[in-house]
Computed example of a mutant assay.
Amino acid sequence: MSEKKASPRICIGAFAGAHGVKGDARVKTFTETPKNIAAYGRVESEDGARRFTLAVMKVLKDSVALVRAPEITSREDAESLKGVRLYIPRAVLPAPDKDEYYLEDLVGLRAETEDGNAAGVVAAVYNFGAGDVLEIGQMPNAKGVRLIPFTKQTTPAVDIPAGRIVIARYALEASGAPTISNKSGENVSDDIAVDLDAEDLKGS
């Protein structure tokens, strides 16, 4: 008997630490509206070991919400969850509008230049406050990773069904374009690490 294939999931946020003494927690949200972290039903940890029924108490700042869940009963529990990613089934999300994409769907796309040459793979998507940025890894004849703004100019074509994204050559070759590596010189592609533990990263 064949194993049942797991349903695709989307990461919509991550715990960012405790708030107060009653088990409330801060959540870094990846939803367009921070309050929507609780709009799609119960969320679960990446390994599926824990599930949470979130209620948003208030939005603390852009992309950070204060939440409460009956499954979190103490400050210590809330603090221990820091960095845990929160997932929902992909099927509960509405279809995106034309020229809009769920960022999770971009990860893993094959990157190509306008003339069809291989340019690497989308390893992660970040947002540092000035718009979405693609991390391109596995670049031919290049070390580290390259960060490319996700705009119509730099990424003129996105084809999710075909598993490809076109990146303007000038964006890949731009002088001084940033790359990211950790202290050991290894490629970094962990968006939660960037958001919650940025002191471990350096630009190169």
Score class of each variant (00 low, 15 high):
140 P>E: 12
126 Y>W: 14
107 V>D: 09
117 N>Y: 13
76 E>C: 11
136 I>L: 15
73 T>G: 14
80 S>F: 07
32 E>H: 04
116 G>R: 03
86 L>D: 00
137 G>C: 08
33 T>S: 15
140 P>H: 12
97 D>V: 02
110 R>I: 14
56 V>M: 03
126 Y>T: 05
122 V>T: 05
68 R>H: 13
34 P>I: 00
65 A>I: 10
131 G>H: 04
72 I>G: 03
52 F>Y: 12
33 T>I: 08
84 V>M: 09
75 R>E: 13
79 E>H: 12
66 L>Q: 04
127 N>K: 05
95 A>W: 00
69 A>D: 07
70 P>C: 09
81 L>M: 04
140 P>Y: 13
72 I>D: 03
40 Y>R: 09
92 V>F: 10
110 R>K: 14
35 K>E: 15
141 N>D: 10
44 E>C: 14
41 G>I: 13
60 L>I: 15
88 I>C: 11
91 A>H: 03
33 T>P: 05
63 S>G: 12
113 T>C: 12
119 A>M: 07
41 G>P: 13
108 G>R: 06
61 K>N: 13
129 G>L: 01
108 G>N: 10
42 R>G: 01
80 S>Y: 08
78 A>I: 11
86 L>Y: 02
65 A>Y: 05
87 Y>V: 11
132 D>H: 10
128 F>Q: 00
54 L>Y: 03
111 A>I: 10
124 A>I: 12
93 L>Y: 00
128 F>M: 05
40 Y>L: 08
84 V>K: 08
69 A>K: 01
63 S>F: 06
48 G>M: 01
29 T>G: 07
35 K>Q: 14
45 S>H: 02
129 G>C: 05
65 A>M: 04
120 G>E: 01
74 S>F: 10
117 N>S: 13
34 P>F: 00
113 T>P: 11
57 M>W: 09
78 A>W: 10
90 R>V: 11
119 A>P: 12
108 G>Q: 05
123 A>D: 05
119 A>W: 03
109 L>G: 06
81 L>P: 01
78 A>P: 03
70 P>I: 07
49 A>I: 02
58 K>M: 08
50 R>A: 09
35 K>T: 15
116 G>P: 02
42 R>Y: 10
122 V>F: 00
98 K>T: 12
98 K>H: 11
129 G>H: 05
114 E>L: 15
123 A>C: 12
100 E>I: 09
88 I>W: 00
55 A>V: 13
67 V>F: 00
30 F>K: 09
83 G>C: 06
124 A>R: 10
141 N>R: 13
105 D>G: 04
74 S>P: 04
87 Y>H: 06
138 Q>D: 12
114 E>S: 15
98 K>S: 14
108 G>I: 04
101 Y>W: 06
106 L>S: 05
135 E>M: 08
58 K>V: 05
91 A>E: 02
99 D>L: 15
111 A>M: 07
104 E>H: 07
70 P>A: 10
74 S>R: 08
128 F>R: 00
65 A>K: 10
29 T>E: 04
141 N>K: 14
49 A>D: 11
95 A>G: 04
35 K>F: 15
107 V>S: 09
116 G>M: 06
50 R>V: 01
41 G>K: 12
75 R>Q: 15
118 A>G: 12
100 E>G: 01
128 F>C: 05
111 A>W: 04
87 Y>E: 06
60 L>N: 08
47 D>T: 07
